[in-house]
Design a protein around this nucleic acid. Sequence first.
RNA 1: GGAGCCAUCGCCAAGUUGGUAAGGCCGUAGAUUGCAAAUCUGCUAUUCACCAGUUCGAGUCUGGUUGGCUCCUCCA
Length: 469
Amino acid sequence: MYIYDSVKKTKLLFEPIIPRKASIYVCGPTVYDDAHLGHARSSLSFDLLVRTFKALRYEVTMGKNFTDIDDKIIKKVQETGKSLEDITTYYINRYQEDMRALGVQDADIEPKATESLEAIESMIQGLIDKDIAYLVNSGDVYFDTSKDANYGTISHKVGDDEDNQSRVEHNSEKRNPKDFALWKACHGDEDICFDTTFSNGRPGWHIECSAMIEKHFSHTHGDDEYSIDIHGGGADLLFPHHENEAAQSRCATGHELSKYWMHNGFVNIDGEKMSKSLGNSFFVKDALKVYDGEILRNYLISVHYRNDFNFNEEDLLNSKKRLDKLYRLKKRVTPTKASKPNIKFHKAMMEAMSDDLNISKALAIIEEMISEANDKFDENPKDKGLKKETLANIEFIDELLGFGGKEPFSYFQIGIDDKTKEKIETLIEARNQAKVDKNYKKSDAIRDELSGMKIAIMDTANGTVWEKL
RNA sequence: GGAGCCAUCGCCAAGUUGGUAAGGCCGUAGAUUGCAAAUCUGCUAUUCACCAGUUCGAGUCUGGUUGGCUCCUCCA
């Protein structure tokens, strides 16, 4: 397995801390709103990583956190009058629903910040004891970046001169402008706070990930040089979030946080980064109203995870056509029992995905497999051995990439109710009778009626089948 | 102001260690079909934003130009 390390900026051979095991931690969402396509893309990127590792027979431990205490959540609490727990529970469930609809496998560990307060407190206290963190009068606790010689090695934003036009507001209580909050003191009655030995307040954004990784992963790696194998997240998290995480962990634990760092690209709408501030957010739930989760998944994974993704409906329809072809092939082999995937196909797929998740190559290999199989079935539609192998190939695709697992006839009938189905069947029977009678005028009229219902029909060796357009 | 990424056919998009451009969509010609659809076959970038350099050889390396994007503030 080769992965691109966004800190070292090269593709590296993955060498796990513990042989045959891969520990992965990905920064999850702050749960104050529904998941947008950007969350989906990040989730999907690392889902492919996990699936590839599993296919390579690695024992994977995947962790993904929920930030469930934060300014924006508190704002939502104040706006709605609901409790913090009501809001975060609701959005965590919504997030999981959406991600499952996209075929994302659940993480093994899904820690929440509010459930990790002890770990957070002890890590901060440890940093204060080492004089790396400092408590100021307001009750805030800051991390002293000047105490960490390696600060800046993650994002390469060394920036020793302070005269850069950084938009960071000046906080007189900080020793250095680059210092960041580990703990934010309580601000009035409206705030949501937790009591600790240093002050009543709540954790800063960065510390939770460090603490949760330490809490959930450290015991599996003992005193190794690194806490986890791979740390992932969106490209925008590289700085300051991951830089700060790395600094905290390094100083608190004495070893580096992660051996490899992976960052996924953005989802753009009309060439611009999708974000709340630009008002061009696209929620997963809205996309799911129009398209099946599998179609959306297939589209969103079709561009390499590190590239920016330009979302538009035309491309989505394009990628749906590729998925349609896979399911049409699956129709040709249904029903049958899967045997083993073709060795060469399996090998080629694994090689593609093992090369830093080269999905484009994998999709090209699938196209070749489909084309070859169709060709052979045109010659001999009843090739039993090929049917079994082809089905096994498709099941392997589903396992590795997470699409193609549906029953093929129902795939083409998503959103059609039973009554309409009956009507379609009746019309097709009538058309076939008309064809037998060589009454082509009538048969064509029936076909027109069906296409008016947005139903396409195709006459195959096994009879007439239909698809929803 | 600082840091970084990207630019490949009409569209989407591969292309570690330089060796002579994957795949899909669209289009087109044909096979098949009563006609379609589906499926199959052929064709569709002498060329990789532009300029210069290194090299026997560069989309791939170096320098520069132009254009697009991101980070430096919460962000996947």
